[in-house]
Every structure is written in C-alpha cells, then in structure tokens.
Lab assay of single mutants.
Amino acid sequence: VTLFVALYDYEAITEDDLSFHKGEKFQILNSSEGDWWEARSLTTGETGYIPSNYVAPVD
C-alpha cells in the first residue's frame, strides 16, 4: 500500500471533500477520478476527496 502525505493544509469546499493538515498521511482508495482522489486519513479515519496536487508519496 502506497501512502501519501499532505504537503499543505486543505479546507474542504464541499461535503465530499476531506479537510486535512500538512503532514497528515493518507491511504488512497481511488485515484482514477483525475485530479481529485478518494482517500482515507490515517489520522482521523475519515474518507473523502482530496486534491492530488496537495499530496506526495511517502518514501
């Protein structure tokens, strides 16, 4: 499982989006939707859509 880490803070715009803070880690559930990925936060356990350009793979 490839994990991703937030590079910036993000505040949800719609109820389907997931708010997060810089440094938060995610498991990507679906990355086939283009620039918005469905993800689960490993910090909160919540799922929602995140902007793919706000995250990077964890080394």
Results as ranks from 00 to 15, higher is better:
1 V>N: 14
1 V>T: 14
1 V>G: 14
1 V>P: 13
1 V>S: 14
1 V>F: 13
1 V>W: 10
1 V>H: 14
2 T>E: 12
2 T>G: 12
2 T>Y: 10
2 T>F: 08
2 T>V: 13
2 T>W: 09
3 L>F: 09
3 L>H: 10
3 L>T: 10
3 L>A: 06
4 F>I: 04
4 F>L: 04
5 V>C: 07
5 V>P: 00
5 V>G: 03
5 V>T: 06
6 A>F: 01
6 A>S: 05
6 A>E: 01
6 A>M: 01
6 A>G: 04
6 A>K: 00
6 A>L: 01
7 L>S: 03
7 L>Y: 04
8 Y>T: 06
8 Y>S: 07
8 Y>H: 08
8 Y>G: 05
8 Y>Q: 09
8 Y>I: 06
8 Y>A: 09
9 D>G: 05
9 D>N: 07
9 D>W: 04
9 D>L: 02
9 D>E: 07
10 Y>T: 01
10 Y>G: 02
11 E>M: 10
11 E>I: 13
11 E>K: 10
11 E>N: 11
11 E>F: 10
11 E>Y: 11
12 A>P: 05
12 A>R: 07
13 I>H: 12
13 I>P: 08
13 I>N: 10
14 T>L: 10
14 T>D: 11
14 T>E: 11
14 T>M: 12
15 E>C: 12
15 E>T: 12
15 E>P: 13
15 E>Q: 12
16 D>C: 15
16 D>Q: 14
16 D>P: 06
16 D>W: 15
16 D>E: 11
16 D>F: 15
16 D>I: 14
16 D>M: 15
17 D>E: 15
17 D>K: 15
17 D>V: 15
17 D>G: 15
18 L>N: 01
18 L>I: 11
18 L>M: 13
18 L>K: 02
18 L>E: 00
19 S>C: 06
19 S>R: 04
19 S>G: 07
19 S>W: 03
19 S>I: 02
19 S>A: 06
20 F>D: 00
20 F>E: 00
20 F>S: 01
20 F>L: 05
20 F>G: 00
21 H>W: 07
21 H>P: 06
21 H>A: 11
21 H>M: 11
21 H>K: 15
21 H>C: 12
22 K>N: 04
22 K>V: 10
22 K>E: 07
22 K>I: 09
22 K>M: 08
22 K>W: 05
23 G>D: 06
23 G>C: 06
24 E>F: 03
24 E>W: 07
24 E>K: 01
24 E>L: 01
24 E>S: 04
24 E>Y: 05
24 E>M: 06
24 E>P: 00
25 K>W: 14
25 K>T: 11
25 K>D: 02
25 K>N: 07
26 F>K: 00
26 F>M: 06
26 F>E: 00
26 F>W: 01
26 F>A: 00
26 F>Q: 00
27 Q>M: 14
27 Q>G: 03
27 Q>F: 13
27 Q>V: 15
27 Q>L: 14
27 Q>Y: 14
28 I>A: 03
28 I>Y: 03
28 I>R: 04
28 I>S: 02
29 L>K: 05
29 L>M: 08
29 L>E: 05
30 N>T: 08
30 N>G: 10
30 N>W: 07
30 N>H: 08
31 S>L: 10
31 S>I: 11
31 S>G: 10
32 S>N: 11
32 S>C: 12
32 S>I: 11
32 S>T: 11
33 E>W: 12
33 E>P: 10
33 E>V: 12
33 E>H: 14
33 E>S: 14
33 E>F: 13
34 G>F: 09
34 G>A: 14
34 G>R: 12
34 G>P: 15
35 D>A: 11
35 D>Y: 15
35 D>I: 11
35 D>C: 12
36 W>D: 03
36 W>L: 08
36 W>V: 08
36 W>K: 13
37 W>E: 01
37 W>A: 03
37 W>L: 08
37 W>Q: 03
37 W>K: 03
37 W>D: 01
37 W>F: 07
38 E>F: 15
38 E>G: 05
38 E>N: 09
38 E>L: 15
38 E>I: 15
39 A>H: 00
39 A>R: 00
39 A>T: 02
40 R>E: 06
41 S>M: 06
41 S>P: 00
41 S>V: 05
41 S>Y: 02
41 S>H: 07
41 S>K: 14
42 L>E: 08
42 L>G: 03
42 L>Y: 06
42 L>S: 04
42 L>I: 10
42 L>H: 04
42 L>F: 06
42 L>Q: 07
42 L>A: 05
43 T>P: 02
43 T>F: 10
43 T>Y: 09
43 T>Q: 10
43 T>M: 10
43 T>E: 14
44 T>D: 03
44 T>A: 03
44 T>I: 01
44 T>Q: 03
45 G>E: 05
45 G>Y: 07
46 E>A: 13
46 E>S: 10
46 E>W: 08
46 E>T: 08
46 E>I: 10
46 E>R: 15
47 T>L: 08
47 T>N: 05
47 T>F: 07
47 T>G: 03
47 T>P: 02
48 G>Y: 02
48 G>N: 01
48 G>H: 03
48 G>W: 02
48 G>C: 02
48 G>V: 02
49 Y>T: 07
49 Y>V: 07
49 Y>E: 03
49 Y>P: 02
49 Y>L: 13
49 Y>R: 15
50 I>R: 00
50 I>W: 01
50 I>K: 00
50 I>P: 00
51 P>S: 05
51 P>M: 07
51 P>H: 08
51 P>N: 09
52 S>T: 07
52 S>D: 02
52 S>K: 14
52 S>I: 07
52 S>Q: 06
53 N>W: 13
53 N>P: 06
53 N>V: 09
53 N>Y: 10
54 Y>P: 01
54 Y>N: 03
54 Y>R: 07
55 V>K: 00
55 V>D: 01
55 V>W: 01
55 V>T: 04
55 V>I: 10
55 V>Q: 01
55 V>N: 00
55 V>P: 01
56 A>W: 09
56 A>C: 09
57 P>D: 04
57 P>K: 08
57 P>I: 09
57 P>G: 05
57 P>V: 07
58 V>L: 13
58 V>M: 12
59 D>S: 13
59 D>G: 12
59 D>K: 11
59 D>N: 12
59 D>C: 13
59 D>R: 09
59 D>Q: 13
59 D>Y: 13
